[in-house]
Design a protein around this nucleic acid. Structure first.
Lengths: 414, 414
DNA sequence: GGATAATTCAATCGGCCTGAATTATTATTG
DNA sequence: CAATAATAATTCAGGCCGATTGAATTATCC
């Protein structure tokens, strides 16, 4: 019997792949244009048409629609050249709003940002260590207060609420400084569901470092890179990843769990490894300061100035750089990103020093077979996690996903 | 002056992002459907409609077109249930052909495969070490011979020629066994351009392990995984990556250069690292055998049976497993793939033993903060590089790229 | 007023969608 | 056991939506 084929397990994990239609095209083009405008600050319709390859007429129609929707804003026409003046269009900051909840080791923050990433309002609560009750009560108080200050029009434009939370809080509880077992509640507690119940708009959750990466991607300078890997040094170090101009969150929202990367131990012999998290986190600096009889609390109180930490800071930077350099090499042997961005809850000078040192150390390592990589300093800083948490709903709504439908990718099936 | 915005560097690296139109939708849906049929062996129009969310009418139109194009083939209708019988459609093996050129350490292969990955013809040349002349002359002889045996209709359906070549051949030349400096010619020699001149159809080039990954992705079993990381153990170990159901080749075609990953040295103290390539490659087994006074050439001659290598093989497997386990953990802390596939130019039993051992060792490592990962044995084996090289042009033409345009990803810009 | 550049108006095309009709099989029934 | 009903797969016809092409309009500088 010809053509009797066997396979077809038929146990299709139903609809894992969706077909496309015109509405998808519209959505795709709208987001593409918004991304371009975000990226270049402002653009004229003609420039957008040239960049996208869309016809001027279509571009015009789409951008007029976006303007009518309040997402784009007409700027003052630019005269001086022959012909009708260029009308620049830029993002309207009031085009959308988003909330970000960052849950940290000793504080949590709730911020309201606009479409351009500016922080409009913020609330903060500090604690010895985080518990679900503390966080929820904080949200219950802070959320109405923030919403109360918004106009009805603004309220309608809230895209969602993003949560940035360290993954597996219950691990590393000793390092957090919580009593043994105190963090176990987080294992079964769904902060997403609880906040969802309180808020009334879409809630997303993301690893805190991936959130920080989202901030750098959407509002920072790193968009100049098409792909980049991102380290955020908070109490614990973590990471994020941007691929093909889109934030990569992975199956579990835990993509780029760089803190868990094994790093060859420096001192000990016998090829043992320790996780990056135990080598490149801020809590190690805290330990160093404590061991030297210093009060480390200013680390967290004034993340703008660490001028008086002296040799302890230097020592920490050196150790961290070594670990980050090794992690960077390991990472680009998995994904050949063009750039690695380093940011953290620390003064800009410290971040810059760190970046330079990592860049120098990377040069000393065995890079045979690897493409070159730039080490770049993040620009958002300590707030990146909260702002990034808020950025995630905006990205979900207004940034382009992985790109398809290249118009020049012709000859499909002939 | 209100609205005078500064940025807009205007130095737009012209058209980095293309807009979408209906032809893109068509292309996308065609490729999506071809991928689904490839994946499930055969599917009826109704099943495809259900999986994609496309209307039955559109699905029918698209699949009829693909059938008219010779890419899909009607199988015998299946009776037995109420209603009109189901007509299964499967890939037509004659729908497309592709050529793969694999350049290796001691041989090069040229294969012709069909749309389903079956090898129709092959040619091989062996040498002490590869030189551009040897390879080009081989192609000049083998290509006409292979093409000569094809019908005109088949010739018209050749999608292209893919080249699989180790990256940076000039590094590791000592390990290849070439005289010092002999591999330097490769530094400036563009095999792509030369073969392009000879062949007349589109030529692509790809790292050899990424090519092998392409074979596993397109023809192997690993498509069951949406994302996976891939190790191929040849003379040198290398890797590949599949993300979101698409082969990830990276900026340089050198994505997942896993061979360059730093691995904590086992014996030596002081936290030094060595590249994975020096820990998990077949040439180390060759060295072991040579050191034991054995002739290692049967390794390459009979990659189906290594029965008599005894304890040397065992020792090699143990060392390689340790290195691969460490590399696996490092890799999933960068990308949280659900599965890691291990394949290589070795007997199936050896591959299986290796996979089991790696899986066991992964369990013993510190995986805090990481998602679980399956270790899977590749099914293609030694031929994966040549077949994969040929698969690349097919993938470029007929597999879906990164996916966008989810129909259910609604609410774009309200 | 002429050249140039930005923008819009009008008509067409391509691809998917909805709704109705057709076809081929199995199940039911007098 | 033949006629009819039920079911499933497929196709035909008309409409919608969004991008395209071509022509016209507007605003500036020379």
């Amino acid at each position: 019997m010809p053509g009797t084929v066997e396979p077809n397990s038929a146990s299709a994990p139903i609809s894992m792949a969706s077909g496309a239609d015109q509405t998808g095209v519209r959505l795709y083009n709208e987001r593409l244009i918004l991304s371009l405008v975000r990226r270049f600050g402002w653009l004229s319709k003609i420039e957008v048409a040239r960049m996208t390859g869309l016809s001027v007429q279509s571009t015009s129609a789409i951008m007029n629609r976006l303007q009518a929707d309040g997402l784009l804003r007409r700027e003052a026409p630019m005269r001086g050249r022959v012909g009708q003046p260029t009308v620049p269009l830029s993002l309207d900051p009031e085009g959308a709003f988003s909330l970000g909840l960052k849950i940290g080791r000793r504080s949590c923050d709730l911020v309201l940002i606009d479409f351009c990433g500016a922080v409009h309002r913020r609330a903060r609560e500090t604690f010895a260590y985080p518990t679900p009750d503390l966080v929820l009560n904080f949200v219950k108080r802070a959320l109405p207060s923030i919403q109360g200050a918004m106009t009805p029009a603004q309220l309608r434009r809230i895209a969602g609420l993003g949560i940035a939370v360290p993954f597996q809080l219950w691990n590393w509880s000793a390092e957090i400084g919580a009593p043994p077992g105190a963090m176990e509640v987080w294992r079964s507690f769904s902060i997403l569901e609880e906040v969802d119940r309180l808020s009334g708009f879409p809630v997303t959750i993301c690893n805190d470092a991936t959130s920080a990466c989202a901030a750098e991607f959407f509002f920072g300078e790193a968009w100049r890179q098409r792909d980049f890997l991102y380290f955020f040094l908070g109490s614990f170090v973590g990471g994020g990843l941007v691929l093909d101009g889109a934030l990569y969150t992975g199956r579990t929202g835990n993509a780029a769990a760089l803190g868990s990367m094994p790093i060859a131990a420096c001192e000990r012999g016998s090829g043992s490894t320790t996780q990056l998290i135990a080598r490149a986190s801020l809590y190690q600096l805290e330990r160093l300061l404590e061991a030297a009889g210093r009060d480390p609390s200013s680390m967290w109180r004034t993340p703008e100035s660490w001028d008086d930490f002296g040799p302890h800071l230097e020592r920490w930077i050196e150790e961290v750089s070594l670990a980050l350099a090794q992690a960077s090499i390991a990472a680009i042997s998995v994904i050949d990103v063009a750039a690695i961005v380093i940011d953290g809850a620390m003064p800009i000078e410290v971040r810059q020093k760190l970046c330079l040192r990592v860049a120098a150390l990377v040069e000393t390592l065995d890079r045979r077979g690897l493409s070159d990589v730039k080490i770049i300093c993040g620009v958002v800083g300590a707030d990146a996690r909260a702002i990034g948490a808020a950025a995630v709903p905006l990205i979900k709504n207004f940034a382009r996903d992985r790109e398809v439908l290249f118009k020049d990718a012709l000859n499909g099936s002939g």
